[in-house]
Computed example of a mutant assay.
Amino acid sequence: MTAETAVPAATSFAALHHRPGEPLLLPNAWDHASAAVLAARGFSAIGTTSLAVAAAVGLPDGEAATREHTLRLALTLGSEPYLLSVDAEDGFSDDPGEVAELAHQLWAVGAVGINLEDGLGPAALHAAKIAAVKAAVPGLFVNARTDTYWLGDGDGDGDAKDTLRRLDAYRQAGADGVFVPGLTDPGRIAHVVRCVDAPLNVLYSPAGPAVPQLADLGVRRVSLGSLLYRRALGAALDAVADIAAGRVPGGTTPSYDEVRALERSVSARASANSTG
């Protein structure tokens, strides 16, 4: 993505959060191949998942250990013909200036969105990070995540009030959207939608409302998080078990040539970039 196309792309990404009754279904990739096959299925916007990025290299998730790996993945995916939003944990720093610098680097390689989580830390600090990012890169879509339901007990009026308090602070700091993973109760989802003046993102849960119901509740973005990565690992385990038991593995299996085609597309783009 060039500097000339970055702003229009970011505008397009933001617009995907403002379609009443049609939330953005955002699948989350962990490498070039996973992003490429999702894009080939018609997804115009793709996110990354911090858990998968961390697990793939044997590092802990949510402990600011994968900053460089996240940047490297963004560099790989940012020039692709889809809109990229990067899961950046808490920005990998408690210094708002350092988080803003990370955001600027992500923007420079083609990302149009960033997801920043508060980890139930001080709301004022997270708001300061958001404000710093928006000051440094106004066009970057900031999805401000609170972990009140993800890390807290997710129940009771206290959690609901803390959620709204945090989301309001992040919105006032300039967040373009808000994210409450772990929020699955339809009544609570509808309440947040009514109370927060920003597109609400929820994390899809097989045990929670389906996407059509989330759309009816007013949700504007539905992320899959690490679900696809975990399903991929599960599929690998199921396939091994089937083979060991003498069964033919079920499920979808891309061919060797189909996967090699992804490699060739990278080589072709690299050649075009070097000659263009």
Rank of each mutant, 00 (worst) to 15 (best):
A6W: 11
V7T: 13
A9L: 13
A10H: 10
A10P: 03
T11K: 11
S12F: 01
S12E: 15
A15F: 02
A15L: 10
A15I: 10
L16V: 12
L16Q: 10
P20H: 05
G21M: 15
E22G: 00
E22V: 15
L26V: 11
N28P: 01
N28A: 12
D31A: 07
D31N: 14
A33K: 03
A33R: 06
S34Q: 08
L38F: 06
A39E: 11
T48W: 04
V53A: 04
G58R: 06
D61N: 04
E63S: 05
A65N: 02
E68W: 02
L71I: 14
L75Y: 00
T76V: 11
T76L: 08
T76F: 00
L77M: 08
L77Y: 01
P81R: 03
L84C: 08
S85P: 03
S85V: 15
S93C: 10
S93G: 06
D94R: 10
D95L: 09
P96S: 10
G97T: 10
G97H: 03
E98Q: 13
A100C: 07
A103C: 06
A108C: 03
V109L: 03
V109S: 00
G110W: 01
I114T: 09
N115C: 04
L116M: 08
E117Q: 08
D118G: 04
D118P: 02
D118F: 07
P122E: 03
A123V: 15
L125E: 12
A127H: 06
A128K: 06
K129P: 05
I130G: 02
A132T: 07
K134A: 09
A135L: 10
P138I: 13
A144K: 05
R145D: 09
L151D: 02
G156A: 10
G156P: 00
D157S: 10
K161A: 15
K161T: 15
L164T: 08
R165A: 12
R166L: 13
A169F: 05
Y170Q: 09
G174F: 06
D176C: 06
L183G: 11
L183H: 01
D185M: 04
G187E: 14
I189L: 11
A190P: 02
V192M: 05
V193F: 06
C195M: 11
C195W: 01
D197L: 06
D197K: 08
P199T: 14
V202M: 09
L203S: 09
A207R: 06
A215M: 07
L217T: 07
S223C: 13
S226N: 14
L228T: 12
L228M: 14
R231V: 15
L233Y: 01
A235I: 08
A235M: 11
A241W: 00
D242K: 00
I243P: 00
A245Q: 05
G246N: 04
P249I: 13
T253K: 03
E258Y: 01
V266C: 01
A268Q: 10
R269E: 09
S271V: 13
A272E: 08
N273H: 01
